[in-house]
Amino acid sequence: MEVERVADAELLLALAEGDRPALAELYRRHAPWLTLRLQRRCTDPDVVDQVVQDTFLAVWRRPDSYRGSGEVAAWLWGIAVRRLIDAFRRRGARRRLPLFVATSSPSAEELVLLGVEHGDLAGALRRLSPELRAVIQAVVLDGLDHREAGRLLGVPATTVKSRLFRARAQLREELT
């Protein structure tokens, strides 16, 4: 694949100077995966597109909120997932989270792949109930706090907390 000659962080610096091509480049690099990842959390493509746009708009207006350390991609996701939560709250949307619809079972190759990356974790995660897995995903992978995760999943923060506790207990039991 093509090598990205200019680092994301440098694009952000250019963007802070009002450089539009830098914004377009950042969009070209990051909008696709953000779109796909948001799509797994919200079924409405219009909402997803709006959230992606809001995300880059926020980046354009406040590029200095990137503190200059860590992956730009991770920072972008942090903005995007919070914008998604805002969108849910604004619309009172209930059409969320296609995440846990059952899908085809993974191939042996994928199982090995998961095994390489996570050891026994994949199997253990798969055996969690969808509710518990959603909480693990929102808190651990998406990096949300309990209240934000609750808004994303449409449950109170206290529920997130208790589910997280149960999920951790189950994982610990299976992995030890």
């Binding site: 991609a73 897995r133 995903q137």
Partner: peptide, 26 residues
């Protein structure tokens, strides 16, 4: 949307950290 949730989670973690896979998935 045709992958198992835990595999998807694993992929998402990887894609977030890997410029080449981000370019591939575009």
């Amino acid at each position: 949307g045709d992958v198992d949730p835990s595999l998807a989670a694993s992929l998402e973690a990887h894609v977030q950290a890997c410029a080449r896979c981000r370019a591939d998935i575009a």
